[in-house]
Nucleic acid binder design. Structure first.
Lengths: 347, 347
DNA sequence: GTGAAAGCGCTAACAT
DNA sequence: ATGTTAGCGCTTTCAC
């Protein structure tokens, strides 16, 4: 009787068990039927799925995870989601994972190693099937290595902590720097500044090393005043270009650590009445979507952020299936994208 | 003997049970000890925590969730994480939730209602303690209402689907529009364009209604050519300003639906050799971080994205504790931020 | 202050 | 093609 009237079938509290009882079958059958297993008869499948829908049944992944030891979550840790570079990576990851039935568990740590370690410790407790992480500036690999040795696949993205034997998906910093420098050299530039970066993270370190090597190859002198240290923000570019223009012998071009810095430089140039591409050449790095939207467009070395995100997903998913794989370094070749912000050197 | 040698204590596979056995106590005690319950003796607590650390024990939240029916996850659904506006909201949410021991489960749907429904259905299965959602453009409230009626607290952010009785945290569109228009009016502008927006989402609808009302109040004519429809992207602004400048009688100022559009307008102005603030006035909306970084800085009506994120978190957490609360509309007052992109009307 | 026991909702052998 | 059974790892009464 109670059965006919039915409690309001509070959806969200419906379980396999209840469906099984109403239908007079076992929970095992319901479980299989809901997943459209070929083991169950078509008619049963239909009945089960219909009732599940009517009852407002919602699959409980916590329960399934406990049983299967898989969560279908991938944890993603980045420093800052507002930065469009990380935004594009995160968007690509989310998109790719959604396609394979996974969901993103997000953590951020603002380039703070201590916060990174706390965040990662929490993420680990959710038992994600894998993690895609961009290490905080200055962090050691300890936390990452711990996670990996606890059996969770970890892939580093964009930045690399060397020597901890973990997968990496990144762009080739040396090639990127050379692409930018060679482009400017062909345009006749000889005094070229480097804006942004520092030596505490692989990316900055690699690029600065390449800069020095390149100068030596071209027989050009190294002027420390042309090396502007700073974070990868618009401010760094804006302030950096002011200092450079105030030099007794200013550069005629700048290679920036990333696009945000380059935008800051372009903005700073305008402030001083100069026009990028005509009076001063600027090259960015990453090719975030905004780079194409500027007037003039930003000449930049693309590090293919979306592609990095996609490759990192593929890698982490592969490792999910085959945890014993040796660590891979997936280094994407950067490409030069010439737009209007670079032009022939003035004489 | 095997016990002394010890298996390599594969961390990640250590359970409460194992700690309990090694220590000769019950799992109940271990559970309490790990959470530093006052019910267990200090000495026991110490022993348990030490061994847990040594063994590399990792708390299994799936198991705990199954038991407690709480996951400590909050699902966040937005259209696009690359958009800095949503980026800032997401960052604020992540930051706020981390402070209260919650983690963000992320879903995106690119303003596609069908994709939104699929994404939300998946997120629901993880049984998040609550959801913070910005509805996709053109979506009905059905999916959201279903979730809420399944007992998961839902708060809408930024955009509102009316009449479904769910919490909202947003900014006052009408006030924002008036703030922008009044500012321009005081500067002497009389032909003012509105760039971006459409009538399929609350935000655009509300602002356009206000625009018409405001014109009427000021006794100004409504010129449909001054209403540029479009998405909230830089392109919309860039293309929109070209069309406006080509008009027989162009406007002297533009109010943009958001900052991205305003950036596009400023870029387009420059392309035509005009300078924002001097030759043409432009007002944005939202006040994303980038707005202050432009030269000239963008005059904009701040909708306080971070504050919206924070308030949404507070609200969803409150509802977690007290699900019976009546729906609240938390409408933040926008504020005008005057920078260099607006100036006196030319005559 | 600690232990025993039950159970959250699901899946996977194994049996029939 | 379906049912039985056991158990994933944790928390929570309720005893002692």
């Amino acid at each position: 009787m109670n059965d006919m009237m039915g409690e309001p079938a509070r959806p969200g509290r419906v379980t396999l068990q209840q469906i099984a009882e109403r239908l007079g079958v076992s929970t095992a059958t319901v479980s299989l039927a809901l997943r459209a297993s070929p083991l169950v008869a078509e008619a049963t499948r239909q009945k089960v799925q219909d009732l599940a829908r009517d009852l407002g049944y919602v699959y409980n992944r916590s329960a399934a995870s406990l049983r299967t030891a898989r969560t279908n979550m991938i944890a993603v840790g980045v420093n800052d989601v507002v930065n469009p570079y990380f935004g594009e990576i995160l968007a690509a990851i989310e998109e790719t994972l959604a396609g394979s039935g996974h969901t993103v568990l997000l953590g951020t740590y603002s380039d703070d190693p201590a916060k990174q370690d706390r965040v990662l410790a929490t993420l680990k407790e959710y038992r994600p099937d894998g993690m895609i992480l961009c290490p905080a500036n200055g962090s050691t690999g300890e936390a990452l290595a711990m996670i990996a040795s606890a059996g969770i696949p970890v892939v580093q993205i964009t930045r690399e902590i060397e020597g901890i034997g973990l997968d990496v998906v990144a762009s080739d910093d040396g090639v990127a720097t050379r692409l930018a420098l060679d482009h400017l050299h062909e345009l006749g530039h000889r005094r070229i500044a480097v804006v942004g970066g520092n030596d505490t993270m692989s990316t900055g370190r690699n690029r600065r090393i390449t800069y020095r090597a390149w100068l030596a190859e071209k027989g050009l002198p190294l002027d420390p005043a042309l090396l502007v240290t700073g974070l990868g923000t618009r401010d760094t570019g804006f302030a950096g270009i002011q200092a450079l223009l105030d030099l007794a012998e200013p550069p005629t071009a700048a290679v920036c650590m990333n696009d945000l810095i380059a935008f800051g430089v372009m903005m700073g140039l305008r402030q001083r009445g100069r026009e990028a591409g005509r009076d001063f050449s600027v090259v960015g790095a990453d090719d975030v979507r905004e780079a194409a939207m500027w007037a003039p467009g930003l000449t930049t070395v693309s590090t293919h952020p979306s592609e990095q995100g996609r490759r990192a997903c593929e890698r982490v998913l592969v490792r999910t299936v085959n945890p014993a794989l040796p660590a891979a370094r997936i280094i994407l070749p950067p490409t030069l994208v010439v737009r209007g912000s670079t032009g022939p050197a003035q004489r």
